[in-house]
Design a protein around this nucleic acid. Structure first.
Lengths: 104, 104
DNA sequence: GGTACATGCAAGTTATTACTTGCCTACCAT
DNA sequence: ATGGTAGGCAAGTAATAACTTGCATGTACC
């Protein structure tokens, strides 16, 4: 689960997509293509971005809604919320807490 | 810079190494091999782990100090501290804050 | 119905990453 | 010195990920 999120964040193009969606939610694939090219200097093709969006959606970072022939993409920050807590919580080598969630 | 950190976090073995070092700082390569095998079910070889450590060190997540024939590894959480802020700060499409640091 | 636009799918290619193999250097003890 | 332990380097292989190409589907609008 968290593995998908880390993998999704590993690519600079995907991080740019998140930046772009965070700033303006509900963009279509074509809109994203244009804005990424202009504002982030991305040279990725439509298909490449489409595949990146699929990865982001699989990680739960992007939600989509279909309307007619358009598909709108929304950024969902929830999976990021406690992603790094396992390393940032005040340091502990005690034996009490091993985290309630399965990690990898 | 941040790119190296995201890339470093993308691998489950490397995340397990961070978990292990966070719990017990200053482990040697051999120590890590043993503990990863036992406690994380890792089957990675010494060389594989050595290379993972190099990636983590390049990302600034692990610092090393040499003492005689031993090399101790310490976890440094600093690069993680504000890694996700760009997406988690209260939502904004205003024009004021674009973050002072170069991202990707 | 026909055409144009928005997106989807799948096979193939290239690039990157993880891992292995084999040998090498440094340190310490006997 | 010799042997054993901790670690390093580099070239090669295997696995995975990113991207391309070409065609298919679905929807709106005339």
């Amino acid at each position: 689960m968290a593995d998908d999120v880390f993998k999704a964040l590993a690519d600079p193009t995907r991080r740019a997509i998140l930046d772009e969606l965070r700033e303006r939610d509900g963009q279509t694939l074509f809109e994203l293509c244009g804005r990424l090219a202009m504002r982030h200097g991305s040279s990725a093709s439509r298909q490449a971005i489409s595949q990146h969006l699929a990865v982001l959606e699989a990680a739960g970072l992007v939600r989509t809604r279909r309307e007619g022939r358009y598909k709108f993409h929304d950024f969902d920050p929830a999976p990021l919320e406690h992603l790094l807590d396992r390393w940032l919580g005040d340091d502990g080598d005690d034996g009490s807490a091993v985290a309630p969630d399965g990690r990898d």
